[in-house]
């Protein structure tokens, strides 16, 4: 098996999907000659042609809206938003349109659109390039929300997304694009939606995370291990559908849960996890479900982002406090 970065794994996934199914096409800004600003699609236009890897005019709403139309025409569009933060310029085509098309047509039309979007902090990006908007998209019923944290999962979840009959928002953590390599299965590697991954075992508490926060939690777990605290790390992989069973299993097993995410605290997806655990496994807990998140303020300039994002220190402190409960 090949050792791939997340960028290479995503490219491999797109190549496999396009070779396998002539209906699959990619569209977005700068994805052709340039291969996208992060080079995920590099080489794909040369390999599959400019009518299957399409550089579009600069307009997020029309990229998403046209992807809906392409899907209605029987194609399998994979749209790229240059950054998730710019999804706001196409928001009405996401929640009000993409997520509701099946319902609005009373089941007549499926819109199997994948919207890929890099996001997340840690690389000193300009304004609007880092915002973690996943909770806003989760509030758009009809759209599945996928948040891979590893190269193999990125490929496997992307291929599942492209085959899914429903629209998928596929969020790619740009900080992890080239952070490390791992073995990625060749060919049509599929990772199912709604099945969380135990990224690390541990018996004293469970850190629940997705996307780049999984990498942060793994570092925190290393640190905690040095203090004699065994922290499990549960990578949710997809927020919609949500692996409720895995969350409850961990809550019952370790009795202490800390949720970590890059989005602001209030109304963040961590609140949904905490609420679900207290509804379903309240008596198994030794203490409250804790959250480590960004503050309830706009994403600051890059030089300030370390003060805004959940830090290793904050995760470790929350974990220590949870163990003391």
């Amino acid at each position: 098996m090949a050792q791939l970065t997340m960028v290479e794994a995503l490219r491999d996934g797109l190549r496999v999907a396009m070779a396998d199914d002539p209906r699959v096409l990619c569209l977005g800004l700068d994805i052709g000659t340039l291969g996208g600003v992060f080079r995920v699609t590099r080489g794909l236009q040369a390999e599959f042609g400019a009518d299957r890897v399409v550089d579009t005019p600069l307009a997020e709403a029309s990229i998403i809206g046209a992807a809906i139309g392409l899907a209605l025409a029987g194609l399998r569009p994979v749209a790229e938003l240059q950054f998730l933060g710019f999804s706001h310029q196409g928001f009405h085509q996401l929640g009000a349109q993409l997520g509701r098309f099946r319902t609005r047509s009373r089941g007549r039309f499926a819109v199997p659109v994948v919207v890929r979007a890099p996001f997340g902090g840690g690389i000193r990006s300009p304004e609007f390039h880092s915002d973690a908007l996943e909770a806003q998209i989760v509030q758009m019923p009809g759209i599945k929300v996928v948040m891979p944290a590893t190269p193999a999962d990125a490929k496997g979840l992307l291929l599942t997304a492209i085959r899914d009959p429903d629209p998928v928002l596929f969020c790619e953590p740009d900080r992890l694009y080239r952070l490390g390599r791992e073995e990625v299965p060749p060919g049509p590697h599929l990772v199912p939606f709604g099945v969380a991954r135990l990224a690390r075992a541990g018996d004293d508490l469970t850190l629940v995370a997705w996307s780049a926060a999984v990498e942060l939690c793994l570092r925190a777990a290393d640190r905690l291990a040095g203090e004699g605290i065994g922290a499990a790390v549960l990578d949710l992989r997809t927020l919609v559908p949500l692996d409720v069973e895995a969350i409850l299993r961990e809550a019952r097993r370790t009795s202490r849960v800390v949720v970590v995410h890059e989005a602001p605290l209030t109304g963040g997806f961590g609140a949904e996890i905490a609420a679900t655990i207290q509804e379903e496994a309240f008596h198994a807990l030794d203490g409250p479900v804790r959250r480590v998140a960004a503050w309830d303020v706009p994403y600051p300039p890059g030089r300030l982002e370390d003060h805004y994002l959940p830090s290793l220190e904050r995760v470790v402190r929350a974990a220590r406090a949870a163990v003391r409960d």
Binding site: L265, T266, W295, D296, V297, P300, L304, H307, Y308
Partner: peptide
């Protein structure tokens, strides 16, 4: 600038919950 800078100029009067986060930070 330190962590407090993240909280500058978000609201004319920050809600108590945001002030508490600022103190925490």
């Amino acid at each position: 600038p330190g962590p407090a800078a993240c909280f500058d100029d978000v609201y004319a009067e920050p809600p108590p919950r945001v002030l508490a986060q600022r103190a925490h930070a």
